[in-house]
Design a binder for these strands. Structure first.
Lengths: 155, 155
DNA sequence: CTGATTTACATTGTGCACAATATAATTTCC
DNA sequence: GGAAATTATATTGTGCACAATGTAAATCAG
């Protein structure tokens, strides 16, 4: 194999390692979240909602978007599904009718207790040192920041 | 914040760091791949096809699936789109009519030359040491193997 | 050899992601 | 104060992912 071959070899792409691992992790979450009646992106939304709830904050759609890096095209239908399941409520602000404020229902708040064991059970049966995950998380976050700060790619 | 709070804090989830970085990387690929008329998953398929082509192999749909961890529900429509763009051809095997064999067209083969500069341009303007990416890739692959080897999660 | 099982791929339906556009409310700038 | 620009969310359309199911061909078992 020449260098030229190597550049485009699938196994040399970090992007593919990232893509494959992300899907494998999501797949491992799936049966656990199914017990909660949540998809993986819905679970992420609920994590933000639970956090905000504890701080007495009722986030706006755009707050979720900023936190999760998702736009209204993704969030609006997702939030409507969570609303239909009575996990949260969406309401326009009286002061500014453009804004939709989100608040947990009691059912949504209660679901947190059932979710509390998800992170633990996820790792269960996996022989991975916790510190390894910590340093990986740090590296992923650091690279995310580089990408979000950087200019769009060249030419 | 109590420990109990921390467990479900969004910023403590490796899964979220992985999810966010994966989407940020894909977003950075997007304008480059658009020049090739490819989506990101289509690009991954083409990487496998180019590799196979150089080895004189015409992979089956299931070969792509095994390599990319995708099933026919994802691959069949994706491959049909690549076929419509005349980048590859799909043909049932005479010996075993269940099997669909994939071969690059000349246009598909030619696209490789245009793709050759994608990895370089992707990193352009990013201040990241190559060795950092190498060790990250290794870590991601190692964890993928752990997940793929492991039992499904408990309970 | 034939019925049962397995294999490979296709189809259907749901739920993201995301670009592009739409809509309505607020803010800004003369 | 009113036209223009901006902001926040919604809608539409395309393309994944993936579960569940279908279909036809090949293999296996008795």
């Amino acid at each position: 194999m020449t260098d030229n071959d190597q550049i485009l070899a699938l196994d040399n792409q970090i992007c593919f390692a990232l893509y494959a691992l992300n899907r494998a992790v999501t797949a491992r979450y799936r049966p656990l979240l199914e017990e909660l009646g949540l998809t993986y992106p819905q679970y992420l939304v609920m994590l933000v909602m639970w956090e905000a709830d504890r701080e007495g904050i009722k986030p706006r759609v755009s707050d979720l978007g900023a936190r999760l890096r998702l736009d209204s095209g993704t969030l609006t239908p997702l939030l409507k599904r969570l609303e239909q399941r009575d996990l949260l409520q969406r309401a326009r602000l009286a002061e500014d009718e453009r804004v939709v404020r989100l608040r947990l229902t009691n059912a949504g708040r209660a679901l947190r207790a059932k979710a509390a064991n998800v992170p633990g059970r996820l790792m269960c049966g996996l022989d991975i040192e916790p510190e390894r995950l910590l340093s990986l998380r740090q590296e992923l976050r650091s690279l995310l920041e580089v990408l979000e700060t950087a200019e769009p790619s060249e030419r």
